[in-house]
Design a protein around this nucleic acid. Structure first.
Ligand SMILES: [Mn+2]
Ligand SMILES: [Mn+2]
Ligand SMILES: [Zn+2]
Ligand SMILES: [Zn+2]
Lengths: 142, 142
DNA sequence: GCATTTTTGCGAATGATTATCAATCTCCTT
DNA sequence: AAGGAGATTGATAATCATTCGCAAAAATGC
């Protein structure tokens, strides 16, 4: 059993326990999400899912993404320009760098920044629920 | 001459110099933006501008906001949920805290975080062009 | 297998934003 | 002050991503 298969197995079990029905199209989309190493949008996820499970519609992709987001299994990002992009929730939090020229998305993590965010919220009397932090960059000119 | 009037005077001069025609509706919208101390969306800016200059349309508000954004005079924000919100560009950069319960937007600034962002981009071989950083918070439970 | 309750696919609806285009206005030149 | 080239406007249609409505199909529990 591959790692991706194991992850989906665990996830479907969790979903079932949460009262969410595990359908063919949900399994397929989940597999696509777990297997993706990028940040595709709904249309792209639809295309990839259709390859595995032709009996899926774009509406269902959108609906399932919302369900999976509510369950905490996927995360939705709204980078500048264009629609929402998605990724399976991984073990570790990270933020994103967007290459303005290629559109590619990279990931990074800074404990220092994470701590400072908490601190800033706390100083103003707030609890930080979540945040958004995106660096829009260009390759450095040599 | 009030401070807001002075600011708009300077701005219109700069716009004219940049080849942008200064119309009644642009002056009015600019005044509204400079006078605002919040982060209104296009519809709200339309309402406020109409009070001062009834001869304005929502389409023109959108178009003018894009023009002013291109000139660097206003900034566009896309917080979670809802459409774009705008503010006149101030003297100092700042980031935002969004109160998840009230929807209110507050501002903050952290030189440390700004520096860390530059550093992270640089380490990955990138030049930071701009960034987005928003803290979604709830008032701390006492 | 059967009943109950969800989920799906299709297409229509939505909401924010942009495009079209003839009429109007700005601003530079006489 | 008048003229005219070219930019801007208002009204409305068009876009685009996303959501909705509903009858048919599928998943779960017994
Ligand atoms: Mn990511
Ligand atoms: Mn602000
Ligand atoms: Zn983070
Ligand atoms: Zn900042």
């Amino acid at each position: 059993m591959t790692l991706a298969q194991d992850m989906t197995a665990q996830m479907t079990a969790a979903l079932r326990k949460a009262g969410v029905r595990v359908t063919r199209q949900r399994i397929a989309l989940l597999a696509v999400l777990v297997g993706a190493d990028d940040h595709p949008d709904a249309e792209e996820l639809y295309k990839r899912t259709k390859r595995v499970e032709p009996a899926v519609s774009l509406a269902t992709v959108y609906r399932t993404l919302s369900v999976l987001e509510a369950e905490g299994v996927v995360q939705r990002h709204s980078f500048e320009g264009g629609g929402a992009r998605f990724e399976a929730t991984g073990p570790a939090h990270h933020d994103h760098i967007v290459d303005l020229d290629s559109g590619e998305v990279f990931e990074f993590n800074s404990d220092k920044i994470e701590r400072l965010q908490e601190q800033i919220a706390a100083e103003l009397g707030y609890d930080l629920v979540h945040h958004r932090m995106e660096l829009y960059c260009r390759r450095r000119k040599p």
